[in-house]
Design a binder for these strands. Structure first.
Length: 274
DNA sequence: CGTCGAGCCTGAAGGC
DNA sequence: TGCCTTCAGGCTCGAC
């Protein structure tokens, strides 16, 4: 589940890669459902002969800028990229391959097949369902306070991409721990001090995640998140997937339970409900 | 508006 | 060892 820091890391890597400035010759679609609402023939027609100009990010989407279109890619749970030689054999998990004019190819692997690709001519229109970027200057205390005025628990609030875009299960658990807030606390019940702490915690966990080039979980196979193997943030996690281990702040054993149908990790001493 | 459950998927992990 | 079940979770959709 790549979240904002992982997607940002991947977007930067692609932007610094040898593919930038080269032309897409063709696409090979190995799992057609990866293309969202689009036939393979149309997809090919839209991207063929276009140059890859830039790789960026909006929310959890990778945004590849071509001459005339944008490629929007959501990795969902297990989407991964690699740059390979055009004549390398297909990987069993490979779903799409883009062939470039320099003899290389962008390989998209996704064992779970949840990831989605789409072609857009209007970024704003295509991603209008996304809320504010938490690392942008626009995400200030005043806006955050306004957003919190709704009848929902903190965890589903933070996971909802239409309010704040980019947070996922890992960084929500981490931010709530840092702010000493329980995930089932009603969003509208926070006082000014808690709002300030949570605002700071969100920016802090995401910034550190980017600094560490993302979080890599699992045993290096199915849950391997980043393009490169430098992702290091997994060693900085305070509560996520640390059930039974001592809270780094007070030593109480971390517990896991379900909130909003998601595995949720908290310190029961530091994070009291309401 | 919000919550909840199902569905999309497969590999890993746990139970027996 | 091996089969079977459960779990993991981002997002969408339909029901309430």
């Amino acid at each position: 589940m790549p979240e904002l820091p992982e997607v940002e890391t991947i977007a930067r890597e692609l932007n610094a890669s040898s593919l930038i400035g080269h032309t897409i010759l063709a696409a090979r679609i190995l799992w057609p459902r990866t293309l969202q609402g689009m036939e393979e023939s149309l997809f090919n027609a839209l991207i063929k002969s276009q140059t890859l100009q830039h790789s960026g990010r909006r929310g959890k989407y990778i945004v590849l800028t071509l001459d005339q279109h944008l490629l929007l890619i959501h990795l969902r749970m297990t989407g991964k990229f690699a740059i390979v030689s055009s004549d390398d054999p297909f990987h069993p998990h490979e779903r799409i391959r883009l062939y470039f004019s320099n003899g290389q190819a962008l390989q998209y692997k996704d064992p779970r097949k949840f990831g989605r690709w789409t072609v857009s001519t209007d970024l704003h229109e295509s991603l209008k369902h996304l809320g504010i970027e938490p690392l942008s200057p626009a995400f200030n205390l005043k806006i955050f306070t306004q957003l919190l005025k709704r009848p929902t628990k903190l965890k589903p609030f933070l996971l909802n991409q239409s309010y704040i875009s980019g947070l996922g299960n890992i960084y929500v658990d981490e931010a709530l721990w840092e702010a000493k807030l329980h995930p089932e606390t009603p969003a509208s019940s926070l006082n000014a001090n808690s709002i300030k702490k949570l605002h700071h915690a969100i920016i802090n966990v995401l910034s550190k995640g980017i600094e560490n080039q993302g979080t890599r979980l699992g045993n290096g196979q199915a849950n391997y998140y980043s393009v490169n193997r430098k992702a290091n943030n997994q060693h900085q996690l305070q509560v996520f997937r640390r059930t039974g281990l001592p809270c780094p702040r007070c030593g109480t054993a971390i517990i896991k339970f379900t909130v909003a149908q998601r595995g949720t990790h908290i310190c029961p001493s530091c994070q009291k409900c309401i």
